[in-house]
Amino acid sequence: MTEFFHMGGYAFFVWTSYAVVAVLFTYQFLSSRSQHKKLIRQLGAEVEHKIRRSNKS
């Protein structure tokens, strides 16, 4: 197991590059999903606002 993490002495280079890719890919994926949720909420509020205004007048 230690041998696996040691990567034949190249641990820094191998694990840093894998970490950079993993972090970026995960962040990108999660952020676009949360952006979608936010948009739905935001647009829903806008539509409701309009309906209420048209009901008043």
Binding site: M7, G8, G9, Y10, F13, V14, S17
Partner: peptide, 16 residues
């Protein structure tokens, strides 16, 4: 397996 010249550092190609 590791590479005959680069050892384990070549494993970066799998993402590079």
């Amino acid at each position: 397996p590791p590479d005959y010249q680069m050892g384990d550092s070549y494993r970066i190609i799998f993402i590079h």
